[in-house]
Simulated scan of single mutants.
Amino acid sequence: MRDHGGNIDTAMARFGGTDWIDLSTGINRSPYPVSDIPMSDWTMLPTRTAMSDTVQAARVAYHTKAPMLATAGAQAAIQMIPRLTRPGCARVLGPTYNEHAAALRAAGWQVQEVTHLDQLDGADLAVVVNPNNPDGQSFAPAALRALADRTRLVVDESFCDPYPDLSLAPDAGQHGLIVLRSFGKFYGLAGLRLGFVVGSSEDIAQLSDMAGPWPVSGAALRIGTQALKDQDWAQSTIARLQRDTAQADGLAQSAGWTILGGTALFRLYHTPDAKAAQNRLARHQIWSRIFPYSDHWLRLGLPGSAAEWQRLADALHDAGSVV
């Protein structure tokens, strides 16, 4: 099993308790309010009209006219993209979300993980997460467009909703550029399993064939369409998240941790001992994310209520007194 956040069942099994705050992911804990779903969305196959409506809402929200496919989360597209072309040399800018390299290797690609953007040149396929998970590093669209002119490029924009100026979705109709968008993270509805892949007409046609006729549920399409059209909610959420990141950073600094980066949906900190810090937070039934390649990095999502913020403040005070 690959290492991921969201494994709250592991935390419960190890530390006990049921009243957990899962901050191990970058999923918005103040989700979009879901209205009642008609029974027909559960009992009937999704219609082409419903799929088209959701894709059109996503095009408007992501400021693109490029071909697009709705998928069962960005993860579904990550697993299909390696099969678009014959395997060759792929380079992934890391450290980053580990499913990109894993999916490529499973499809027969030779994968190199590199640490600088210019090292992606010359690959048969290059992957950039922008902004990056877990450190939040971001790359100017102009630099990525230039790279896409030379190298077949996948840009994972799963955490890009708060940063629309970073997005390459408006450029994704050009050959050789594929852009991924996650719905569940920013809208806080990861269990819905909805995402989008934007690309050239040829790539989207191939991916559509792989995904099959009903890649997304009727309920996901209805909720996704409604949420993507609600720009007032999106703008107010972005403003709130900006305030919340400052609050989280202040609490972490009071615990003696150093800010390394992050996005408006998660923060990354340097701690004296990440494992000890995670354990201390877990005793307050707060689950965080640590990484097998660092003894010091700890990532925290953002609480979703005043009560959760108070629990995090208490837990960080405890953690700072020990590690």
Results as ranks from 00 to 15, higher is better:
Thr115Met: 08
Ala13Met: 08
Leu69Gly: 07
Ser305Leu: 09
Ile178Asp: 02
Ala106Asp: 14
His296Tyr: 11
Gln235Thr: 09
Ala315Thr: 05
Ala61Gly: 01
Ala252His: 12
Ala101Gly: 13
Ser138Tyr: 00
Asp19Thr: 12
Pro134Ala: 09
Pro170Gln: 01
Val216Arg: 03
Leu23Tyr: 00
Asp230Leu: 05
Ile259Cys: 12
Gln226Ser: 11
Gln278Leu: 13
Pro292Arg: 13
Ile37Asp: 03
Glu113Ala: 09
Trp214Lys: 06
Glu99Gln: 10
Ala77Asn: 05
Ala57Trp: 01
Asp135Arg: 06
Ile290Val: 15
Trp42Val: 03
His4Ser: 12
Leu168Gly: 04
Thr25Leu: 09
Thr271Pro: 07
Ser182Phe: 03
Ile21Val: 10
Arg91Ser: 09
Arg311Ile: 02
Gly6Asn: 05
Ile286Thr: 02
Val155Pro: 02
Arg145Phe: 00
Leu69Val: 04
Gln235Trp: 05
Asp118Met: 12
Leu84Val: 03
Gln235Tyr: 08
Pro131Thr: 04
Asp135Leu: 12
Gly6Gln: 06
Ala101Tyr: 04
Ser321Leu: 14
His63Pro: 00
Thr54Trp: 08
Gly73Trp: 02
Asp232Ala: 12
Arg299Ser: 14
Asp273Tyr: 07
Gly5Glu: 01
Asp318Thr: 12
Asp22Lys: 02
Leu316Arg: 07
Gly6Ser: 06
Leu221Lys: 06
Leu251Asp: 05
Arg240Ser: 10
Ser208Lys: 08
Trp20Glu: 01
Ile21Tyr: 01
Arg105His: 09
Ile259Asp: 01
Gly256Pro: 13
Pro67Thr: 04
Ser201Tyr: 07
Asp295Glu: 10
Ile21Ser: 02
Met1Arg: 09
Ala143Asp: 12
His175Asp: 15
Gln112Asn: 12
Trp20Met: 06
Asp171Cys: 14
Val128Met: 05
Gly191Ser: 11
Arg48Val: 05
Pro272Leu: 04
Ile238Leu: 07
Arg311Val: 05
Ser236Asn: 12
Gly122Met: 07
Lys185Arg: 13
Tyr187Gln: 01
Gly256Met: 13
His317Arg: 11
Leu268His: 12
Met12Thr: 09
Trp233Val: 01
Gln110Arg: 15
Val128Gln: 04
Ser167Met: 13
Lys185Val: 14
Leu251Ala: 05
Ser201Gln: 14
Ile204Cys: 07
Ser200His: 07
Ile286Gln: 01
Gln79Gly: 08
Ile37Cys: 03
Gly88Gln: 15
Pro272Ser: 07
Thr49Arg: 11
Gln119Val: 00
Leu300His: 08
Ala220Tyr: 03
Phe15Tyr: 11
His296Glu: 13
Leu192His: 05
Ala70Tyr: 00
Phe291Ile: 06
Phe159Pro: 01
Pro82Arg: 06
Gln75Ile: 08
Leu125Asp: 07
Thr43Lys: 09
Arg152Leu: 02
Glu202Ser: 11
His4Leu: 12
Leu192Ala: 08
Ala219Asp: 06
Leu120Lys: 07
Ser200Tyr: 10
Ala126Met: 00
Ile290Thr: 14
Arg181His: 13
Met51Trp: 00
Thr54Asp: 02
Arg29Tyr: 02
Thr245Cys: 14
Ser288Ala: 15
Arg14Ser: 13
Leu69Tyr: 02
Thr25Arg: 11
Ser294Gln: 06
Trp20Val: 06
Ala148Tyr: 04
Gly88Ser: 08
Asp118Pro: 08
Leu117Phe: 10
Ile204His: 03
Arg222Trp: 08
Gln247Cys: 13
Arg283Pro: 02
